[in-house]
């Protein structure tokens, strides 16, 4: 009988959860997994995702910010912030200069293989521990922009890596719509995917590129 009280606690928690869900669904009819402010999820089958990794921790691309300055990341890879660009037209594409390393080349080819007349590309890079891999939880289309949700998870136990190693991971996500009317973009990154269902991962990639 020792877990009576635990059961009671679980019931209370379940009730609280149900209450919160009810609150959500009264505002909007979107599915329960996605909070209403998130926008509509882009169907995973309509996404093409490419992951690349620079094990030297080098940046993959530079971005011109409009004043002629090039957004070139600092040397210390750990301190480098996540950078994301949403490419919707040739002008936007031209502001991005890819480095000449092979992962950067691969990402460039993926971007340039996209017809920006009918599609758009979400581009992101960030430092990731050598023992972790990147995954995409989902991409959400909002009224005026897109939002990418990513996380990281431990790589397989037999993968040789050092806890001190930090790589640069680049993610290209090809979206099935043009982005002319979409101006904003955002991203989120969770340190542990936990039980999250993901649509693409570095180990297996995903979407139509699978």
């Amino acid at each position: 009988m020792s877990d009576w009280s635990r059961r009671r606690a679980l019931q209370a928690a379940a009730a609280a959860g149900a209450f919160a869900l009810a609150g959500c669904s009264s505002e909007s009819s979107v599915s329960r997994e996605v909070p209403p402010e998130r926008g509509e999820p882009v169907p995973p089958a309509d996404l093409a995702v490419r992951f690349v990794r620079d094990t030297g921790g080098e940046p993959l691309f530079d971005v011109e910010d409009g004043t002629g300055d090039r957004g070139t990341p600092k040397d210390d890879v750990r301190a480098r912030p996540t950078r994301a660009e949403y490419l919707t037209d040739a002008e936007g594409r031209d502001r991005v200069t890819f480095r000449s390393t092979s992962p950067a080349e691969e990402l460039r080819a993926f971007v340039d293989g996209t017809d920006l007349g009918s599609r758009s590309v979400y581009l992101l890079e960030r430092p990731v521990s050598a023992c972790y891999e990147a995954r995409v939880v989902g991409v959400y289309r909002e009224e005026d922009g897109v939002d990418a949700d990513l996380c990281q998870s431990l790589r397989p136990a037999d993968f040789v890596c050092s806890v001190d190693g930090v790589d640069t991971v680049g993610v290209g996500i090809r979206l099935p719509f043009p982005g002319d009317e979409l101006s904003g973009h955002g991203w989120s990154w969770r340190g542990d995917c936990g039980d999250l269902r993901t649509v693409a991962d570095e180990g297996g990639e995903g979407g139509e590129g699978r």
Binding site: R155, D158, F159
Partner: peptide, 10 residues
């Protein structure tokens, strides 16, 4: 003795 050091550490 697990090659992935983060797994080994955990």
């Amino acid at each position: 003795a697990v090659p992935n050091e983060a797994v080994a550490e955990r």
